[in-house]
Design a protein around this nucleic acid. Structure first.
Length: 572
RNA sequence: GGACCAUUAGCUCAGCUGGAUAGAGCGCUGCCCUCCGAAGGCAGAGGCCAGAGGUUCGAAUCCUCUAUGGUCCGCCA
Protein backbone atom coordinates (compact mmCIF):
# COMPACT_ATOMS: atom_id res chain seq x y z
CA UNK A 1 0.00 0.00 0.00
CA UNK A 2 1.51 3.25 -1.14
CA UNK A 3 -0.58 6.07 0.23
CA UNK A 4 0.84 8.55 -2.24
CA UNK A 5 0.09 6.31 -5.18
CA UNK A 6 -3.44 5.78 -3.89
CA UNK A 7 -4.00 9.48 -3.54
CA UNK A 8 -2.64 10.06 -7.01
CA UNK A 9 -5.19 7.58 -8.31
CA UNK A 10 -7.89 9.55 -6.48
CA UNK A 11 -6.63 12.77 -8.04
CA UNK A 12 -6.63 11.19 -11.50
CA UNK A 13 -10.17 9.92 -10.96
CA UNK A 14 -11.27 13.41 -10.03
CA UNK A 15 -9.54 14.84 -13.09
CA UNK A 16 -11.27 12.35 -15.34
CA UNK A 17 -14.57 13.30 -13.76
CA UNK A 18 -13.78 16.92 -14.56
CA UNK A 19 -13.17 15.97 -18.17
CA UNK A 20 -16.48 14.10 -18.23
CA UNK A 21 -18.23 17.17 -16.83
CA UNK A 22 -16.61 19.46 -19.34
CA UNK A 23 -14.61 21.27 -16.68
CA UNK A 24 -11.44 20.14 -18.44
CA UNK A 25 -10.97 19.58 -22.17
CA UNK A 26 -10.55 16.10 -23.61
CA UNK A 27 -7.20 14.62 -24.48
CA UNK A 28 -5.06 15.89 -21.63
CA UNK A 29 -2.08 13.84 -20.52
CA UNK A 30 -1.86 13.27 -16.79
CA UNK A 31 1.64 11.76 -16.71
CA UNK A 32 3.20 14.78 -15.04
CA UNK A 33 0.64 14.95 -12.27
CA UNK A 34 2.34 14.17 -8.96
CA UNK A 35 1.24 13.72 -5.39
CA UNK A 36 4.10 14.33 -2.98
CA UNK A 37 4.79 15.10 0.63
CA UNK A 38 5.14 18.88 0.87
CA UNK A 39 8.51 20.16 1.95
CA UNK A 40 6.89 22.18 4.72
CA UNK A 41 4.59 20.24 7.03
CA UNK A 42 2.52 23.38 7.52
CA UNK A 43 1.26 22.84 3.98
CA UNK A 44 -0.55 19.71 4.97
CA UNK A 45 0.05 16.04 4.42
CA UNK A 46 0.23 15.87 0.65
CA UNK A 47 0.31 18.24 -2.25
CA UNK A 48 -0.54 17.85 -5.91
CA UNK A 49 0.69 19.93 -8.82
CA UNK A 50 -2.18 18.83 -11.08
CA UNK A 51 -3.64 22.28 -11.64
CA UNK A 52 -0.30 23.83 -12.60
CA UNK A 53 0.66 21.05 -14.94
CA UNK A 54 -2.69 21.08 -16.71
CA UNK A 55 -3.30 24.82 -16.84
CA UNK A 56 -1.43 25.48 -20.04
CA UNK A 57 -2.65 22.54 -22.15
CA UNK A 58 -6.18 23.12 -20.86
CA UNK A 59 -6.02 26.85 -21.47
CA UNK A 60 -7.30 27.56 -17.96
CA UNK A 61 -5.98 29.34 -14.90
CA UNK A 62 -4.24 26.99 -12.49
CA UNK A 63 -6.05 28.28 -9.43
CA UNK A 64 -9.42 27.77 -11.12
CA UNK A 65 -8.62 24.15 -11.88
CA UNK A 66 -7.29 23.67 -8.36
CA UNK A 67 -10.46 25.13 -6.81
CA UNK A 68 -12.68 22.73 -8.77
CA UNK A 69 -10.40 19.80 -7.96
CA UNK A 70 -10.41 20.76 -4.29
CA UNK A 71 -14.19 20.48 -4.05
CA UNK A 72 -14.13 17.04 -5.62
CA UNK A 73 -11.31 15.72 -3.42
CA UNK A 74 -12.92 17.03 -0.27
CA UNK A 75 -15.75 14.64 -0.98
CA UNK A 76 -13.41 11.73 -0.36
CA UNK A 77 -13.49 10.00 2.96
CA UNK A 78 -9.77 10.19 3.65
CA UNK A 79 -9.41 13.85 2.72
CA UNK A 80 -10.09 16.22 5.58
CA UNK A 81 -9.47 19.39 3.62
CA UNK A 82 -8.11 20.58 0.32
CA UNK A 83 -6.77 24.06 0.00
CA UNK A 84 -5.42 25.99 -2.98
CA UNK A 85 -2.07 27.60 -2.27
CA UNK A 86 0.69 29.49 -3.99
CA UNK A 87 0.67 29.42 -7.78
CA UNK A 88 -1.84 26.57 -7.89
CA UNK A 89 -0.77 23.86 -5.51
CA UNK A 90 -3.52 21.89 -3.91
CA UNK A 91 -2.62 21.04 -0.34
CA UNK A 92 -4.40 18.08 1.17
CA UNK A 93 -4.93 17.34 4.80
CA UNK A 94 -5.83 13.76 5.46
CA UNK A 95 -8.36 12.44 7.89
CA UNK A 96 -6.87 11.19 11.14
CA UNK A 97 -8.13 7.70 10.37
CA UNK A 98 -5.64 7.48 7.49
CA UNK A 99 -2.69 7.35 9.85
CA UNK A 100 -4.11 4.65 12.06
CA UNK A 101 -4.82 2.70 8.89
CA UNK A 102 -1.20 3.02 7.86
CA UNK A 103 -0.09 1.55 11.17
CA UNK A 104 -2.65 -1.22 10.99
CA UNK A 105 -1.59 -2.09 7.47
CA UNK A 106 2.04 -2.39 8.48
CA UNK A 107 1.16 -4.71 11.33
CA UNK A 108 -1.01 -6.91 9.15
CA UNK A 109 1.00 -6.90 5.95
CA UNK A 110 4.44 -8.47 6.16
CA UNK A 111 5.14 -7.18 2.68
CA UNK A 112 4.54 -3.51 3.48
CA UNK A 113 6.89 -1.49 1.31
CA UNK A 114 7.49 -4.25 -1.18
CA UNK A 115 6.30 -3.60 -4.69
CA UNK A 116 5.99 -5.35 -8.02
CA UNK A 117 7.42 -2.53 -10.08
CA UNK A 118 10.10 -4.91 -11.36
CA UNK A 119 7.34 -7.23 -12.61
CA UNK A 120 9.57 -10.23 -12.28
CA UNK A 121 11.95 -8.99 -14.96
CA UNK A 122 15.44 -10.48 -14.76
CA UNK A 123 18.29 -8.23 -13.76
CA UNK A 124 21.94 -9.16 -13.44
CA UNK A 125 23.91 -7.23 -10.85
CA UNK A 126 27.65 -7.67 -11.26
CA UNK A 127 29.74 -6.44 -8.37
CA UNK A 128 33.07 -6.86 -6.59
CA UNK A 129 34.71 -8.70 -9.53
CA UNK A 130 38.12 -8.20 -7.95
CA UNK A 131 41.19 -9.79 -9.53
CA UNK A 132 41.80 -13.16 -7.89
CA UNK A 133 45.25 -12.13 -6.73
CA UNK A 134 44.71 -11.42 -3.05
CA UNK A 135 42.29 -10.62 -0.27
CA UNK A 136 39.58 -8.04 -0.83
CA UNK A 137 40.48 -4.56 0.32
CA UNK A 138 38.49 -1.58 1.48
CA UNK A 139 37.57 -0.37 -1.98
CA UNK A 140 36.10 -3.76 -2.82
CA UNK A 141 34.21 -3.64 0.45
CA UNK A 142 32.27 -0.60 -0.59
CA UNK A 143 31.44 -2.12 -3.95
CA UNK A 144 30.42 -5.36 -2.27
CA UNK A 145 28.09 -3.64 0.16
CA UNK A 146 26.66 -1.33 -2.46
CA UNK A 147 26.06 -4.09 -5.00
CA UNK A 148 24.55 -6.39 -2.44
CA UNK A 149 22.19 -3.77 -1.04
CA UNK A 150 21.19 -2.77 -4.55
CA UNK A 151 20.46 -6.40 -5.37
CA UNK A 152 18.36 -6.69 -2.22
CA UNK A 153 16.53 -3.51 -3.08
CA UNK A 154 15.69 -4.72 -6.57
CA UNK A 155 14.52 -8.03 -5.17
CA UNK A 156 12.33 -6.08 -2.74
CA UNK A 157 10.72 -4.27 -5.66
CA UNK A 158 9.83 -7.30 -7.70
CA UNK A 159 12.88 -7.96 -9.85
CA UNK A 160 14.30 -11.41 -10.42
CA UNK A 161 17.89 -10.73 -9.36
CA UNK A 162 21.11 -12.58 -10.16
CA UNK A 163 24.18 -11.58 -8.15
CA UNK A 164 27.29 -12.17 -10.14
CA UNK A 165 31.07 -11.96 -9.78
CA UNK A 166 33.34 -11.80 -12.81
CA UNK A 167 36.63 -13.53 -12.11
CA UNK A 168 39.47 -11.84 -13.99
CA UNK A 169 41.44 -15.03 -14.30
CA UNK A 170 42.42 -14.72 -17.93
CA UNK A 171 44.98 -11.93 -17.99
CA UNK A 172 48.61 -11.32 -17.17
CA UNK A 173 47.94 -10.60 -13.50
CA UNK A 174 47.20 -14.24 -12.73
CA UNK A 175 50.56 -15.15 -14.25
CA UNK A 176 52.14 -12.71 -11.82
CA UNK A 177 50.18 -14.41 -9.07
CA UNK A 178 51.50 -17.79 -10.17
CA UNK A 179 55.11 -16.55 -10.13
CA UNK A 180 54.59 -15.05 -6.69
CA UNK A 181 53.17 -18.30 -5.39
CA UNK A 182 56.12 -20.13 -6.93
CA UNK A 183 58.46 -17.99 -4.85
CA UNK A 184 56.49 -18.83 -1.71
CA UNK A 185 56.64 -22.45 -2.76
CA UNK A 186 60.43 -22.28 -2.97
CA UNK A 187 60.45 -20.52 0.36
CA UNK A 188 58.44 -23.38 1.83
CA UNK A 189 61.25 -25.60 0.63
CA UNK A 190 63.68 -23.55 2.68
CA UNK A 191 65.10 -21.38 -0.09
CA UNK A 192 65.77 -17.69 0.30
CA UNK A 193 63.68 -15.78 -2.20
CA UNK A 194 63.52 -12.17 -3.32
CA UNK A 195 60.31 -10.53 -4.49
CA UNK A 196 61.10 -8.49 -7.54
CA UNK A 197 58.96 -5.61 -8.74
CA UNK A 198 55.86 -6.93 -10.38
CA UNK A 199 55.30 -9.77 -7.95
CA UNK A 200 52.91 -9.87 -5.02
CA UNK A 201 54.84 -9.92 -1.74
CA UNK A 202 51.83 -10.24 0.60
CA UNK A 203 51.99 -12.70 3.47
CA UNK A 204 48.70 -14.24 2.40
CA UNK A 205 50.56 -16.24 -0.27
CA UNK A 206 52.79 -18.03 2.25
CA UNK A 207 50.08 -20.52 3.05
CA UNK A 208 49.34 -21.01 -0.64
CA UNK A 209 53.02 -21.82 -1.28
CA UNK A 210 53.06 -24.20 1.65
CA UNK A 211 49.86 -25.88 0.49
CA UNK A 212 51.34 -26.25 -2.95
CA UNK A 213 54.39 -27.95 -1.48
CA UNK A 214 52.05 -30.22 0.42
CA UNK A 215 50.33 -31.19 -2.80
CA UNK A 216 53.19 -31.50 -5.32
CA UNK A 217 56.23 -32.02 -3.13
CA UNK A 218 59.45 -30.85 -4.78
CA UNK A 219 58.36 -31.58 -8.32
CA UNK A 220 58.60 -27.90 -9.42
CA UNK A 221 61.82 -27.03 -7.60
CA UNK A 222 64.51 -26.01 -10.04
CA UNK A 223 62.25 -26.19 -13.07
CA UNK A 224 61.36 -23.47 -15.54
CA UNK A 225 58.15 -21.54 -15.83
CA UNK A 226 57.02 -23.58 -18.82
CA UNK A 227 56.74 -26.56 -16.51
CA UNK A 228 54.68 -25.11 -13.69
CA UNK A 229 53.05 -21.85 -14.79
CA UNK A 230 49.72 -23.23 -15.87
CA UNK A 231 49.15 -25.60 -12.99
CA UNK A 232 50.30 -23.14 -10.34
CA UNK A 233 48.09 -20.50 -11.91
CA UNK A 234 45.05 -22.71 -11.53
CA UNK A 235 46.06 -23.75 -8.05
CA UNK A 236 46.64 -20.17 -6.96
CA UNK A 237 43.50 -18.66 -8.45
CA UNK A 238 41.42 -21.38 -6.82
CA UNK A 239 43.06 -20.58 -3.50
CA UNK A 240 42.46 -16.86 -3.97
CA UNK A 241 38.84 -17.38 -4.89
CA UNK A 242 38.38 -19.44 -1.73
CA UNK A 243 39.89 -16.57 0.19
CA UNK A 244 37.63 -14.06 -1.54
CA UNK A 245 34.54 -16.16 -0.92
CA UNK A 246 35.41 -16.25 2.76
CA UNK A 247 35.93 -12.49 2.77
CA UNK A 248 32.55 -11.99 1.16
CA UNK A 249 30.90 -14.41 3.57
CA UNK A 250 32.31 -12.47 6.52
CA UNK A 251 30.40 -9.49 5.19
CA UNK A 252 27.28 -11.52 4.53
CA UNK A 253 27.59 -11.37 0.76
CA UNK A 254 26.64 -14.46 -1.18
CA UNK A 255 26.89 -14.54 -4.95
CA UNK A 256 24.56 -16.53 -7.18
CA UNK A 257 27.15 -16.97 -9.87
CA UNK A 258 30.88 -16.69 -10.39
CA UNK A 259 31.76 -16.19 -14.03
CA UNK A 260 35.28 -17.02 -15.16
CA UNK A 261 36.99 -14.86 -17.74
CA UNK A 262 39.21 -17.80 -18.59
CA UNK A 263 36.17 -19.81 -19.64
CA UNK A 264 35.81 -17.42 -22.56
CA UNK A 265 39.22 -18.25 -24.04
CA UNK A 266 39.78 -21.11 -26.43
CA UNK A 267 36.06 -21.79 -26.62
CA UNK A 268 35.21 -19.48 -29.48
CA UNK A 269 33.05 -17.30 -27.30
CA UNK A 270 35.11 -14.15 -27.70
CA UNK A 271 35.22 -14.75 -31.43
CA UNK A 272 31.45 -15.23 -31.48
CA UNK A 273 30.80 -11.98 -29.65
CA UNK A 274 33.06 -10.05 -31.98
CA UNK A 275 31.48 -11.79 -34.94
CA UNK A 276 28.11 -10.52 -33.72
CA UNK A 277 29.51 -7.00 -33.78
CA UNK A 278 31.14 -7.62 -37.13
CA UNK A 279 27.80 -8.73 -38.53
CA UNK A 280 26.44 -5.32 -37.60
CA UNK A 281 29.34 -3.67 -39.42
CA UNK A 282 30.94 -2.44 -36.22
CA UNK A 283 34.38 -4.05 -36.50
CA UNK A 284 37.14 -2.72 -38.73
CA UNK A 285 40.91 -2.51 -39.10
CA UNK A 286 42.31 0.93 -38.53
CA UNK A 287 44.49 3.25 -36.53
CA UNK A 288 43.61 5.59 -33.72
CA UNK A 289 44.56 9.21 -33.33
CA UNK A 290 47.05 9.72 -30.51
CA UNK A 291 45.49 11.26 -27.40
CA UNK A 292 45.70 15.02 -27.69
CA UNK A 293 47.56 17.22 -25.26
CA UNK A 294 50.33 14.98 -24.07
CA UNK A 295 51.75 12.60 -26.61
CA UNK A 296 53.02 9.38 -25.05
CA UNK A 297 56.80 8.97 -25.41
CA UNK A 298 56.63 5.71 -27.25
CA UNK A 299 53.71 6.56 -29.50
CA UNK A 300 53.77 5.02 -32.91
CA UNK A 301 50.86 4.54 -35.21
CA UNK A 302 49.75 0.94 -35.43
CA UNK A 303 46.90 -0.74 -37.14
CA UNK A 304 44.54 -2.55 -34.82
CA UNK A 305 41.18 -4.24 -34.86
CA UNK A 306 38.68 -1.69 -33.64
CA UNK A 307 35.09 -1.67 -32.40
CA UNK A 308 33.09 1.21 -33.78
CA UNK A 309 31.80 2.18 -30.34
CA UNK A 310 31.24 5.74 -31.55
CA UNK A 311 28.18 4.40 -33.35
CA UNK A 312 26.70 3.77 -29.88
CA UNK A 313 27.65 6.89 -28.02
CA UNK A 314 31.34 6.49 -27.26
CA UNK A 315 33.86 9.24 -27.95
CA UNK A 316 36.43 7.21 -29.87
CA UNK A 317 36.48 3.72 -31.32
CA UNK A 318 38.12 1.12 -29.09
CA UNK A 319 40.66 -1.58 -29.88
CA UNK A 320 39.62 -5.16 -29.29
CA UNK A 321 42.85 -6.67 -30.59
CA UNK A 322 46.35 -5.45 -29.92
CA UNK A 323 48.71 -4.86 -32.80
CA UNK A 324 50.34 -8.21 -32.03
CA UNK A 325 47.02 -9.96 -32.59
CA UNK A 326 46.17 -10.83 -28.99
CA UNK A 327 42.94 -9.68 -27.35
CA UNK A 328 42.73 -6.49 -25.37
CA UNK A 329 41.03 -6.65 -22.00
CA UNK A 330 37.96 -5.19 -23.63
CA UNK A 331 37.41 -8.22 -25.88
CA UNK A 332 36.59 -10.78 -23.19
CA UNK A 333 34.52 -8.14 -21.44
CA UNK A 334 32.45 -7.76 -24.58
CA UNK A 335 32.07 -11.52 -24.70
CA UNK A 336 31.07 -11.62 -21.05
CA UNK A 337 28.35 -9.04 -21.52
CA UNK A 338 27.23 -10.79 -24.67
CA UNK A 339 26.86 -13.89 -22.56
CA UNK A 340 24.70 -12.00 -20.07
CA UNK A 341 22.49 -10.77 -22.88
CA UNK A 342 22.21 -14.27 -24.30
CA UNK A 343 21.24 -15.59 -20.90
CA UNK A 344 18.14 -13.47 -21.30
CA UNK A 345 18.53 -10.73 -18.75
CA UNK A 346 16.18 -7.78 -19.19
CA UNK A 347 18.58 -5.35 -17.52
CA UNK A 348 22.24 -5.29 -16.56
CA UNK A 349 23.97 -3.43 -13.78
CA UNK A 350 27.75 -3.23 -13.33
CA UNK A 351 29.25 -1.91 -10.11
CA UNK A 352 32.79 -0.60 -10.70
CA UNK A 353 35.36 1.39 -8.81
CA UNK A 354 35.54 5.01 -9.84
CA UNK A 355 38.93 4.44 -11.46
CA UNK A 356 37.12 2.47 -14.14
CA UNK A 357 34.98 5.45 -15.05
CA UNK A 358 36.70 5.77 -18.40
CA UNK A 359 35.41 2.34 -19.27
CA UNK A 360 31.70 3.07 -18.93
CA UNK A 361 30.92 4.46 -22.34
CA UNK A 362 32.57 1.67 -24.29
CA UNK A 363 30.83 -0.97 -22.17
CA UNK A 364 27.47 0.68 -22.69
CA UNK A 365 28.23 0.96 -26.38
CA UNK A 366 29.01 -2.76 -26.54
CA UNK A 367 25.84 -3.76 -24.73
CA UNK A 368 23.76 -1.40 -26.79
CA UNK A 369 25.22 -2.79 -30.00
CA UNK A 370 24.95 -6.44 -28.98
CA UNK A 371 21.38 -6.17 -27.75
CA UNK A 372 20.20 -3.75 -30.44
CA UNK A 373 19.51 -1.26 -27.69
CA UNK A 374 17.08 -3.59 -25.98
CA UNK A 375 18.99 -4.36 -22.79
CA UNK A 376 19.82 -1.34 -20.65
CA UNK A 377 23.16 -1.34 -18.86
CA UNK A 378 23.56 0.90 -15.84
CA UNK A 379 27.08 1.29 -14.51
CA UNK A 380 27.37 2.44 -10.90
CA UNK A 381 30.74 3.81 -9.88
CA UNK A 382 31.85 3.65 -6.26
CA UNK A 383 34.22 6.35 -5.12
CA UNK A 384 37.17 5.81 -2.84
CA UNK A 385 36.94 5.09 0.87
CA UNK A 386 39.29 6.95 3.20
CA UNK A 387 39.85 5.26 6.51
CA UNK A 388 40.27 7.15 9.75
CA UNK A 389 40.58 6.38 13.38
CA UNK A 390 39.99 9.18 15.86
CA UNK A 391 40.71 11.74 13.18
CA UNK A 392 44.00 10.11 12.10
CA UNK A 393 44.40 8.42 8.72
CA UNK A 394 44.29 4.69 9.20
CA UNK A 395 46.69 2.54 7.23
CA UNK A 396 47.12 -0.56 9.34
CA UNK A 397 47.07 -3.89 7.67
CA UNK A 398 47.74 -7.10 9.43
CA UNK A 399 47.66 -9.20 6.33
CA UNK A 400 48.89 -7.53 3.23
CA UNK A 401 51.51 -5.04 4.35
CA UNK A 402 50.33 -2.31 2.04
CA UNK A 403 46.55 -2.04 2.11
CA UNK A 404 43.69 -2.37 4.54
CA UNK A 405 41.65 -5.46 3.83
CA UNK A 406 37.96 -6.15 4.04
CA UNK A 407 38.76 -8.46 6.94
CA UNK A 408 40.58 -5.70 8.78
CA UNK A 409 37.44 -3.58 8.60
CA UNK A 410 35.00 -6.32 9.53
CA UNK A 411 37.21 -7.47 12.41
CA UNK A 412 37.39 -3.92 13.69
CA UNK A 413 33.72 -2.90 13.66
CA UNK A 414 31.67 -5.92 12.57
CA UNK A 415 29.77 -6.67 9.38
CA UNK A 416 26.61 -4.77 10.32
CA UNK A 417 28.40 -1.53 11.12
CA UNK A 418 30.56 -1.90 8.03
CA UNK A 419 27.57 -2.35 5.79
CA UNK A 420 25.48 0.47 7.16
CA UNK A 421 28.36 2.92 7.26
CA UNK A 422 29.32 2.17 3.67
CA UNK A 423 25.81 3.23 2.67
CA UNK A 424 25.80 6.55 4.47
CA UNK A 425 27.09 8.22 1.35
CA UNK A 426 25.92 8.28 -2.22
CA UNK A 427 27.94 5.77 -4.24
CA UNK A 428 29.62 8.41 -6.39
CA UNK A 429 30.72 10.54 -3.44
CA UNK A 430 33.98 9.81 -1.60
CA UNK A 431 33.44 8.23 1.80
CA UNK A 432 35.27 8.90 5.03
CA UNK A 433 35.06 5.85 7.23
CA UNK A 434 36.14 6.51 10.81
CA UNK A 435 36.46 3.33 12.86
CA UNK A 436 35.93 5.15 16.13
CA UNK A 437 32.87 7.06 14.96
CA UNK A 438 31.35 4.01 13.34
CA UNK A 439 30.96 2.27 16.69
CA UNK A 440 30.31 5.40 18.74
CA UNK A 441 27.03 5.37 20.62
CA UNK A 442 25.69 8.82 19.91
CA UNK A 443 23.15 10.63 17.85
CA UNK A 444 25.59 11.59 15.12
CA UNK A 445 26.27 7.95 14.35
CA UNK A 446 23.42 6.82 12.07
CA UNK A 447 24.16 3.13 12.57
CA UNK A 448 23.84 3.40 16.30
CA UNK A 449 20.83 5.69 16.16
CA UNK A 450 18.83 3.34 13.97
CA UNK A 451 19.81 0.27 15.97
CA UNK A 452 19.05 2.10 19.18
CA UNK A 453 15.51 2.84 18.02
CA UNK A 454 14.95 -0.82 17.26
CA UNK A 455 16.43 -1.92 20.58
CA UNK A 456 14.25 0.55 22.48
CA UNK A 457 11.16 -0.85 20.82
CA UNK A 458 12.17 -4.39 21.65
CA UNK A 459 12.74 -3.32 25.22
CA UNK A 460 9.23 -1.87 25.40
CA UNK A 461 7.78 -5.02 23.91
CA UNK A 462 9.57 -7.19 26.44
CA UNK A 463 8.14 -5.03 29.18
CA UNK A 464 4.65 -5.28 27.69
CA UNK A 465 5.01 -9.05 27.40
CA UNK A 466 6.00 -9.26 31.04
CA UNK A 467 2.85 -7.33 31.94
CA UNK A 468 0.83 -9.48 29.55
CA UNK A 469 -0.29 -6.50 27.51
CA UNK A 470 -1.01 -7.31 23.87
CA UNK A 471 -0.75 -4.87 20.98
CA UNK A 472 -4.17 -3.57 19.99
CA UNK A 473 -5.84 -1.23 17.54
CA UNK A 474 -3.57 1.80 17.05
CA UNK A 475 -4.55 4.97 18.85
CA UNK A 476 -2.71 8.05 17.64
CA UNK A 477 -3.55 11.19 19.56
CA UNK A 478 -0.42 13.26 19.98
CA UNK A 479 1.10 15.15 17.03
CA UNK A 480 4.42 13.41 17.68
CA UNK A 481 2.70 10.08 17.17
CA UNK A 482 1.13 11.25 13.93
CA UNK A 483 4.55 12.48 12.77
CA UNK A 484 5.93 8.99 13.13
CA UNK A 485 2.97 7.48 11.28
CA UNK A 486 3.41 10.04 8.52
CA UNK A 487 7.03 8.98 8.17
CA UNK A 488 5.96 5.35 8.01
CA UNK A 489 3.55 6.22 5.22
CA UNK A 490 6.46 7.47 3.11
CA UNK A 491 8.28 4.14 3.17
CA UNK A 492 6.78 2.47 0.06
CA UNK A 493 7.29 5.61 -1.97
CA UNK A 494 10.86 5.95 -0.77
CA UNK A 495 11.60 2.34 -1.69
CA UNK A 496 10.31 2.87 -5.20
CA UNK A 497 12.41 5.98 -5.70
CA UNK A 498 15.54 4.29 -4.34
CA UNK A 499 15.02 1.25 -6.57
CA UNK A 500 14.29 3.26 -9.67
CA UNK A 501 17.47 5.28 -9.23
CA UNK A 502 19.57 2.31 -8.15
CA UNK A 503 20.45 4.20 -4.98
CA UNK A 504 20.34 2.04 -1.85
CA UNK A 505 21.85 4.82 0.27
CA UNK A 506 18.42 6.42 0.28
CA UNK A 507 17.21 3.54 2.42
CA UNK A 508 19.88 4.25 5.02
CA UNK A 509 19.00 7.94 5.13
CA UNK A 510 15.31 7.17 5.44
CA UNK A 511 15.91 4.78 8.32
CA UNK A 512 17.84 7.48 10.13
CA UNK A 513 14.95 9.90 9.66
CA UNK A 514 12.42 7.36 10.85
CA UNK A 515 14.55 6.61 13.89
CA UNK A 516 14.87 10.34 14.63
CA UNK A 517 11.16 10.81 14.49
CA UNK A 518 10.66 7.83 16.77
CA UNK A 519 13.27 9.03 19.28
CA UNK A 520 11.55 12.43 19.37
CA UNK A 521 8.31 10.75 20.39
CA UNK A 522 10.15 8.69 22.96
CA UNK A 523 11.75 11.77 24.45
CA UNK A 524 8.36 13.40 24.82
CA UNK A 525 7.41 10.35 26.84
CA UNK A 526 10.15 11.23 29.29
CA UNK A 527 8.41 14.51 30.11
CA UNK A 528 4.83 13.45 29.56
CA UNK A 529 4.13 10.04 31.05
CA UNK A 530 0.86 9.78 29.14
CA UNK A 531 2.87 9.37 25.92
CA UNK A 532 4.77 6.31 27.11
CA UNK A 533 3.95 3.16 25.27
CA UNK A 534 3.34 1.06 28.34
CA UNK A 535 0.87 2.53 30.81
CA UNK A 536 1.17 0.17 33.70
CA UNK A 537 -2.23 1.03 35.15
CA UNK A 538 -4.10 1.12 31.87
CA UNK A 539 -4.01 -1.98 29.71
CA UNK A 540 -6.43 -0.61 27.14
CA UNK A 541 -4.44 2.55 26.52
CA UNK A 542 -1.20 0.59 26.39
CA UNK A 543 -2.59 -1.77 23.79
CA UNK A 544 -3.44 1.18 21.56
CA UNK A 545 -0.05 2.84 22.07
CA UNK A 546 2.00 -0.28 21.42
CA UNK A 547 0.87 -0.52 17.80
CA UNK A 548 2.97 2.40 16.60
CA UNK A 549 6.36 1.18 17.89
CA UNK A 550 5.55 -2.26 16.55
CA UNK A 551 5.03 -0.75 13.12
CA UNK A 552 8.25 1.25 13.39
CA UNK A 553 10.15 -1.91 14.31
CA UNK A 554 8.65 -3.70 11.32
CA UNK A 555 9.78 -1.02 8.88
CA UNK A 556 13.21 -0.73 10.50
CA UNK A 557 13.64 -4.48 10.20
CA UNK A 558 12.51 -4.41 6.62
CA UNK A 559 14.82 -1.55 5.70
CA UNK A 560 17.82 -2.94 7.54
CA UNK A 561 17.14 -6.20 5.72
CA UNK A 562 17.62 -4.42 2.40
CA UNK A 563 20.92 -3.08 3.64
CA UNK A 564 21.88 -6.53 4.87
CA UNK A 565 22.05 -5.41 8.49
CA UNK A 566 20.67 -7.41 11.40
CA UNK A 567 18.54 -5.36 13.80
CA UNK A 568 19.69 -5.44 17.42
CA UNK A 569 17.39 -6.76 20.12
CA UNK A 570 19.22 -4.84 22.80
CA UNK A 571 22.28 -2.68 23.13
CA UNK A 572 25.20 -3.73 25.18
C1' G B 1 43.29 18.58 -26.01
C1' G B 2 39.09 15.36 -24.60
C1' A B 3 35.75 12.34 -21.38
C1' C B 4 33.40 11.27 -16.65
C1' C B 5 32.24 12.73 -11.60
C1' A B 6 31.90 16.48 -8.09
C1' U B 7 31.04 21.85 -6.16
C1' U B 8 24.64 23.01 -1.25
C1' A B 9 25.33 26.30 6.28
C1' G B 10 31.88 27.26 9.68
C1' C B 11 32.66 21.38 8.95
C1' U B 12 30.73 16.48 6.96
C1' C B 13 26.77 15.57 3.84
C1' A B 14 21.16 14.61 2.16
C1' G B 15 17.82 16.82 -1.24
C1' C B 16 12.49 12.53 -5.21
C1' U B 17 9.73 12.75 -12.08
C1' G B 18 11.61 20.35 -11.93
C1' G B 19 7.34 22.46 -7.08
C1' A B 20 6.07 26.59 -2.40
C1' U B 21 10.07 29.84 2.86
C1' A B 22 16.58 24.45 0.45
C1' G B 23 17.18 20.06 5.14
C1' A B 24 20.16 16.69 8.81
C1' G B 25 24.33 15.75 12.06
C1' C B 26 28.57 18.11 14.11
C1' G B 27 30.20 22.89 15.80
C1' C B 28 28.20 27.61 17.86
C1' U B 29 24.44 30.40 21.24
C1' G B 30 20.54 30.08 24.89
C1' C B 31 17.30 27.35 28.02
C1' C B 32 15.88 22.72 30.38
C1' C B 33 16.94 17.73 32.55
C1' U B 34 19.92 14.23 36.09
C1' C B 35 13.43 11.61 35.19
C1' C B 36 14.79 6.41 33.35
C1' G B 37 12.57 2.80 28.99
C1' A B 38 21.08 5.21 30.57
C1' A B 39 24.32 6.30 26.42
C1' G B 40 20.36 13.79 27.29
C1' G B 41 16.27 17.08 25.54
C1' C B 42 14.22 21.68 23.41
C1' A B 43 14.96 26.07 20.85
C1' G B 44 17.91 29.69 18.00
C1' A B 45 21.48 31.85 14.77
C1' G B 46 23.88 30.37 10.39
C1' G B 47 22.63 29.84 2.66
C1' C B 48 23.67 34.49 -3.80
C1' C B 49 22.78 25.90 -3.78
C1' A B 50 30.69 27.68 -7.47
C1' G B 51 29.64 31.78 -11.50
C1' A B 52 26.98 33.41 -16.00
C1' G B 53 23.30 32.59 -19.58
C1' G B 54 19.02 29.56 -21.30
C1' U B 55 14.39 26.31 -21.12
C1' U B 56 9.11 27.38 -18.13
C1' C B 57 3.83 28.96 -14.65
C1' G B 58 8.09 27.36 -11.49
C1' A B 59 15.25 25.44 -11.47
C1' A B 60 19.86 23.24 -6.23
C1' U B 61 17.45 19.76 -9.83
C1' C B 62 17.15 20.05 -17.11
C1' C B 63 20.50 22.49 -21.29
C1' U B 64 25.00 25.59 -22.76
C1' C B 65 29.41 28.07 -21.36
C1' U B 66 33.08 29.30 -17.50
C1' A B 67 35.88 28.39 -12.87
C1' U B 68 37.84 24.98 -9.19
C1' G B 69 38.89 19.87 -7.48
C1' G B 70 39.19 14.45 -8.42
C1' U B 71 39.53 10.24 -11.86
C1' C B 72 40.62 8.49 -16.65
C1' C B 73 42.50 8.84 -21.77
C1' G B 74 46.04 2.76 -28.01
C1' C B 75 49.48 -1.80 -27.44
C1' C B 76 47.33 -2.53 -18.26
C1' A B 77 43.65 -5.20 -15.99
Amino acid sequence: MNLFAQMRDDVLDALRAMVADGALPEGLGFDNVTVEPPRDAAHGDMATNAAMVLAKPAGLKPRDIAADLAVRLEGLERVASAEVAGPGFLNLRLDASVWTQVVETILQDQAYGRSDTGQGARVNVEYVSANPTGPLHVGHTRGAVFGDALANLLDFTGWDVTREYYINDGGAQVDVLARSVYLRYLEAHGQDVAFADGTYPGDYLKKVGADLKEQVGDRFVGTGEEVWLESIRDFATDAMMDLIREDLASLGVEMDNFFSEKSLYGTGRIEAALQALDDKGLIYRGTLEPPKGKLPEDWEEREQTLFRSTAHGDDVDRPVKKSDGSWTYFAPDIAYHYDKIERGFDALIDVFGADHGGYVKRMKAAVSALSDGKVPLDVKLCQLVKLWKNGEPFTMSKRSGNFVTLRDVVDEVGADVTRFTMLTRKNDAPLDFDFAKAVEQSKDNPVFYVQYAHARIRSVQRKADALEIATGVPQLTDPAEVDVARKLAEWPRLVEIAARNHEPHRIAFYLYELASSFHALWNRGNDDASLRFVQEDDVIASAGKLALPAAVAAVLTSGLGILGVTPLEELR
